[in-house]
Write a protein that binds this DNA or RNA. Structure first.
Length: 264
DNA sequence: ATGTCAGCGACACGCTGA
């Protein structure tokens, strides 16, 4: 089975590229992040023509996640166990943001995740990010069994090591590289999840994100922040994994590249 | 270079978020 994850930075802006990529890469399951549309605005018919069912979780202009599958789409779950909200400056109520959705596809329990950015260390959004990651750990712990293949895929907005950013010296006092964020990744290990490390198609580190600005992509100033974690039942079946950096090229591209995992 | 995108409200472009 081929399972992939891709932060598309607006599914409507990315629709032509998404349909092309589905047709060429032919994943059985695709986790999407940053839909930037409401669930009922997802282009269900367009992907159905390529054989995909859709479970989407979105509310509007920010966030939004989905799972596309042609291997079945059962037991859909939206949101995390005790998922924290984020109180934005202009909102009185805590917003329950659409950042997590799960489904069982071909016997594999799959989560599509869009971890909060954090903005800057110490910011309320950073504290929200850490609370959100703890809810993710608790949700995984609740769902995990030894027998069922289980995988978390998505934009984690964390670089696991200093090598996973183009120049660690540029990330002093930045999010994505702090000890607390990396401790949250380590906590996923404590519940039995390990990372699937992808091949790079070019250069040494398989970056998954490059800023749109300042020629970051041609200069390979990237970050490896789109990650895949699985339990042993999942990772033991992994035959290959790679970052499709070619999808970051050209016109109408996302700022993230898809991460592909092939299982036996 | 605070250098690029995307969506929104409102119909030009500033704001927010990344």
């Amino acid at each position: 089975m081929r399972i992939a994850t891709w932060n598309v930075n607006s599914v409507s802006a990315r629709l032509p590229r998404l349909l092309e990529w589905l047709s060429s890469a032919r994943p059985d399951v695709l986790c999407l992040q940053e839909l930037k549309c409401a669930a009922d605005a997802f282009p269900v018919e367009e992907v159905a023509e390529l054989g995909y069912e859709v479970a989407a979780h979105g509310t509007g202009r920010w966030n939004g996640v989905a799972i596309l599958s042609k291997a079945g789409l059962d037991d859909v779950r939206r949101g995390l166990l005790d998922q924290p909200g984020y109180q934005s400056q202009d909102a009185l109520l805590e917003a329950d943001e659409p950042r997590a959705i799960a489904a069982t596809c071909g016997g594999v329990r799959v989560w599509s995740l869009y971890v909060p950015n954090g903005r800057e260390p110490g910011h309320a959004h950073y504290k929200y990010k850490l609370r959100w990651l703890e809810a993710l750990r608790a949700t995984a712990a609740e769902e995990l069994t030894a027998e069922r293949p289980f995988a978390l895929l998505g934009d984690f907005n964390i670089a696991p090591t200093d090598s996973d950013v183009w120049d660690i010296a540029k990330f002093h006092d930045s999010t994505h590289v702090t000890d607390a964020e990396r401790a949250a990744l380590a906590a996923l290990g404590e519940v039995g999840l390990t990372e699937v490390y992808p091949r790079a198609l070019k250069y040494d580190i398989p970056f998954t994100y490059w800023d749109y600005r300042a020629l970051a992509f041609p200069q390979n100033r990237g970050m490896r922040i789109d990650l895949v974690y699985g339990n042993d039942s999942f990772t033991s079946t992994v035959a290959d994994s790679y970052v499709d950096r070619n999808e970051r090229k050209g016109k109408g591209q996302s700022d993230h590249a898809p991460v592909v995992v092939d299982t036996a």
